[in-house]
Every structure is written in structure tokens, then in C-alpha cells.
Design a protein around this nucleic acid. Structure first.
Lengths: 339, 339
DNA sequence: TTGAAAGCGCTAACAA
DNA sequence: TTGTTAGCGCTTTCAA
């Protein structure tokens, strides 16, 4: 009645022996196929598994079948609310398909990113999702992908040779600025942006274009890291220009949080004196004060599409731009209701 | 000069053949041991690896060696800023030790959590880190851990049979409330808390104890989910009591974000009319408006300790309570400087 | 210094 | 319906 308590794991051989069957039969009942098993034999096997606390080794199975039911995800900053949300959406979609996520943060370090990708490939993930710190913009040396599906996330546009996904950043930015101009009569819309999402960033193009279409001059622009601290510094910078902007379009929620901070600190009434609109539309943006009017990226749909691409054998490389949606809250000066 | 372009992966056998050596030698150069290889032989092998773009299969290696260089992490809500931060800290510590993270979100679902743990164990992770939705408080059936090191994270206290880590929540809460009473003369400190971290939650005990020591009556208390929405609702609830609290201690940053929102909406000056102190002290808490005075949990140290425990073979189950640190910002009414 | 070969735990083709 | 067995790609002992 005693069963092994030593460190060695219970294998299907132990179960087979205990149940008095062959290892093949054990496999058949564990996987419910591909051969059928007599009901009472199956019962004996199941009993043996229970008694021995048998836990199939999923890695061994993966080695045999050539699929690991694992996806790799590499991103540059998992603390950025947009990436946090994207990451969760991907994990959920993956779970739906019975896959788990191996995650790694490259901290925006190009070499580390390269290493991480290589390692994950070595771990034989079934697919690799990458928010690259550089490949999104620069068509560079081909990735060392040896038949492992790869999808580039958060891309401004097509990347030769790879599947990619991204928001219609130009359109989203245009809509944001348009709202500021049309609904709130802003004439001097400032812009805060980070680096790495295309050069120039399509959001910058959207902002410029909208201003131009309205016959307005380009407002002041500040470039800073994609963080709250970055947005904070950029806003103080903008505020010190003369003339200062009368409103600000911030290219990410992460930065917008810092922008709001700087504005409050300067005693400026965000909705009234200096309307702000951000880009991303994460959950987060609804809880700032005031709640951010923001251009929402359809995170769930993007995640779903990314996994579809990973699973579709070998369609030709394609880029998928997702429509964004302007969520009106109060930071722009509109009077929305509470959450 | 042409090399296989078919879907099959290049294996060490291909490399061995190409370099005209045995597979053992390939292994020796890949792992730089355990036998030494003649310099020029090694060079030939390396050349072969380069030409064939050889990528060792890390899973096969894991199967053979019995260690996967992978850690599993299961938590109930990866969007909660505290868990996001903890997760990143763990990933960093793991990276330091050459391990990657397999992550999964249980969404606070007990059954799913159980499943996830089992699956990760089946994947033969070298260690499992678990923020349990229930096991933290309830000593329940032993986990199906078959020799895989397990560490319970974010625990209020010892859990029989398991390693665990957590903040000194009682002490932290006491310090927070004490600050409100001593430095800001609050007499009726309200409390917002969630469920699942011990019953009663040590933070509640710390709050009660501090009030009692000061000869004050217990303020109003509201229980809500560990989310911004939860904190928002709880605050509105508290505000509707009569008499309403004159200040609030919120048991998590996540909820505090919502609390601030409700307070602003009600037109209450947070620093002045209704001081607020939160628990967690995430990065996040420094970017709210006003910046939250908060009890910081030493996330990095906790992550480091968790990994130490995973790596120390089989020390007796122990609980590690970490000291917290009250970060004074402005939500309590103090006048701190900018970030 | 190198090679042959056993075996990690599993699946599935093939045989019985 | 069940059993035997050949690998999946790798490491490492043992022998040469």
C-alpha cells in the first residue's frame, strides 16, 4: 500500500506496473485515445494514477509531440499599463486554447531582447509574441525564427517578412486632436511622445495633420520616455515654453498619468484650463483624476488576432491595423458621468 | 552549402554529422563540458552550429537533466498594481538565476487555481510561487506538490506545511493609522478592506488596535473587492454613513485609486478635509493625485526571499514577515515634495 | 580527446 | 483491446 516517496517522479511505467497493464494503455487512458480501452481496464488505470498521484510529465509529452502548448511573450516594460493589459489579454486568449505563457521583460534592451527571443525559441514555444524595442520600426536582420510562428505586437505598420499587429495610430491621434480642436476650441495643442514606435511616430503625423487641416500651427512637442516620470518631465517642459500649449495630446496613458501630475502641481485645472487627451485607453485611464479622455486600442481583439496568426500555419506576412475608439471622459473638458 | 529548410528542427545529430564528430562532442562544446574538446574540433563544431543555425532544444535538455530552469507563478489578479510589481520583481530575480517564468492568472477562482497549480507541476517547473485565493488563510488539503518547492506569496502568516512570505500587515496598518491620529489629529478613521488575506485581516487588527490604544472608537469599515471599482464603491458607502469618517485607511493601493476618485467626485479635498493612507506603496501610489501616503511592502526583497526558498533544498516550512515602511506623501495632509 | 550507447518520460505505429 | 517498441533531442557514463 506504500508508494514511492522518494524524489523521483512517478512515471507512466509505475502506473502501468501497478495497474498491471502496458504503458501504452496508460497513455491511451490519459489522452483518451487514440486507441480505446476496456472500461474496467481504464478504471484500474485511473485508480492506479490516483493512488500513485501520477502527474504526466508535460515536457516529455511536448518533446514527443513536437508542440509544447506554450507561447512566449517578450515586451519592453511590463509595468506600462497598456502592456500589462495586453499581456493579460494574450494570456487569456492563450488559456482558451490550452496554452500557457512564458513571459520575459526586455526592459527595452535590444541585446537582451535578442537573447530572450533566442532562448524562448530554444524552449520550443509554439509561437512567439514580441513587442520589439526596435524591430517594429527598423527592418533589420531576420529573426532567428526556425519555423516558429512569430507575431510582432504594437507595430506602427507592416514589417517585411513578419506578421504584425498594431493600432491605427494615425487615425486615433487625428480623432483625439480633432476633438480638442472642434469640441473644445483649442488652438495650440501640445504633444507628448516617446521613441521607438516608428519614425516619425504615426501619432505625431496624425496630430500634425489634424492641426494642418484646421489651419492651425504645430503646437509644442516634447519627447520623453514612455513612463509617468517621462510624461511628468515632458509636461513641465511644455509648460515652460512660451507661449505654452493650451491643451495637450499625450501619446500614451503611462505618460498621461505623469502629465496630469505636473498639471495639478502647477495648479492648472485640467478639464478647464488645459484639456488633455491620451492614447491607449487602458482601464487605468478611467481612474485618474480627472478621468482621461483617451483613444482606446482594442486590446482584446488584438490579442485574439495575434493568437489567430500564431495558429494559422503559414499565411503570408501581413499587418493588421486596428481601429481605435475615442472614449470621452472629462480630462478634455467634457462632462462625462462617473465610472 | 545548402542546409535543411524543412520544418524539422536541426538537432545535435545534424551538427555532429556536419562537423564529422559524435553527438557527445557537440554536447561537450555546447555545455562547455563535462569533457574537454580539442580546440580545433571545438571550432569545427561551432562552425557547424553556425552554418546550420543550430538551436539546442531546451526542453529535451530539461527532460534529461530533471530541471527546467522554469518557475511557475500563479496569482489572482495580475492587473492589481501590487501583483504587477511583485510579478516583475520575481521575474527579475528569476532571470538573475537563469530561470524564466510561466505565469497564469487564476482570477481569484479557486478551482482554476487548483488546476493551474497541477498543470504547472506537470510542466515540471523547478519551483512554484503562488498567491493563493484561499490557501493563504485556510489550512486545507495538502497541495499536490510532489517534491516541487512551493512558496506561498502575500500571506498574512504561517501556513502549516508550506513556506510563506508576507508583509507585517498588522504593524504596517498600525503605523498608517497612528500617523493619521498623531500627525493629523484624526478621530474617526474609516477603513476599507477586501477579503481573503486572513480572517480577520491583520490590517483590520492593526487599525483597531491603534484606535483602541489611542482611546478612540472604531471608525466605519467597508468591505469591497480588491479593485479600484471596489474602493470607489466602498468610499461612497463610507461617505454616506453618519457620522462619516474624517479620514480613511485603505488596505490596498488598488482600492485607494478608487477611493480618491470617489472623494474627488464628492468635492472633498483629500489632503485637507479627508486624509487618506493606503497599503502597498506601489510605484503607482506616487502618481495618483494627490500622491498617496502609503505603507510600502518591500517587493524586491520579498521576491528575492521567495526565490531563495525555492532554491534552498528542503528547509523546514517557515513564514517570513517583512517589515513595511510608511512613505509620507500628501494624501494624508503632509506636504511632501514632488516625485 | 572522442565515440557508442543508455535512458529521461512520453506517444503511437505496428503487431498480436 | 492490449502490448512491444522505436524514437523525440539531449546528457553523460563508460570504453576506446
Amino acid at each position: 500500500m506504500s508508494h514511492p516517496t522518494n524524489p523521483r517522479n512517478i512515471t507512466r511505467a509505475d502506473v502501468a506496473r501497478y495497474a498491471g497493464v502496458s504503458t501504452a494503455v496508460v497513455s491511451y487512458v490519459v489522452n483518451d485515445g487514440p486507441r480505446s480501452v476496456a472500461p474496467d481496464t481504464a478504471a484500474r488505470v485511473r485508480e492506479a494514477m490516483r493512488v500513485l498521484r501520477y502527474q504526466p510529465d508535460l515536457n516529455a509529452r511536448a518533446l514527443k509531440k513536437g508542440r509544447s502548448q506554450t507561447l512566449g511573450l517578450v515586451m519592453p516594460d511590463s509595468m506600462n499599463p497598456f502592456f500589462t493589459e495586453l499581456s493579460l489579454a494574450i494570456e487569456s486568449s492563450a488559456a482558451t486554447r490550452g496554452q500557457r505563457m512564458l513571459v520575459a521583460d526586455s526592459h527595452g534592451d535590444t541585446d537582451l531582447e535578442e537573447q530572450l527571443v533566442t532562448e524562448l525559441l530554444g524552449r520550443r514555444v509554439d509561437g512567439l509574441l514580441l513587442v520589439s524595442s526596435f524591430r517594429r520600426s527598423t527592418p533589420s536582420a531576420p529573426l532567428p525564427v526556425q519555423g516558429t510562428p512569430l507575431v510582432l505586437l504594437d507595430c506602427p505598420g507592416p514589417v517585411p517578412g513578419h506578421h504584425s499587429i498594431g493600432p491605427d495610430a494615425h487615425g486615433g491621434a487625428f480623432a483625439a486632436v480633432d476633438h480638442l480642436i472642434r469640441e473644445h476650441d483649442q488652438r495650440r495643442v501640445g504633444f507628448i511622445i516617446g521613441e521607438g514606435f516608428g519614425t516619425p511616430d504615426p501619432r505625431q503625423l496624425g496630430w500634425e495633420r489634424c492641426l494642418q487641416d484646421a489651419g492651425l500651427r504645430r503646437g509644442p512637442i516634447a519627447v520623453a520616455p514612455w513612463t509617468a516620470a517621462g510624461g511628468y518631465g515632458a509636461t513641465k517642459d511644455l509648460l515652460s515654453r512660451s507661449p505654452a500649449p493650451d491643451s495637450i495630446f499625450v501619446a500614451s496613458d503611462a505618460q498621461a498619468v505623469g502629465a496630469l501630475h505636473a498639471l495639478h502641481e502647477a495648479g492648472i485645472d485640467v478639464g478647464g484650463d488645459c484639456p488633455v487627451v491620451s492614447f491607449d485607453g487602458t482601464q487605468h485611464s478611467s481612474w485618474t483624476w480627472p478621468p482621461l479622455t483617451s483613444v482606446r486600442q482594442p486590446v482584446e481583439a488584438m490579442a485574439e488576432k495575434a493568437l489567430d496568426l500564431v495558429h494559422s500555419p503559414s499565411t503570408a506576412p501581413s499587418h493588421h491595423a486596428f481601429d481605435t475608439h475615442l472614449i470621452i471622459r472629462t480630462s478634455c473638458g467634457c462632462h462625462a458621468s462617473s465610472p
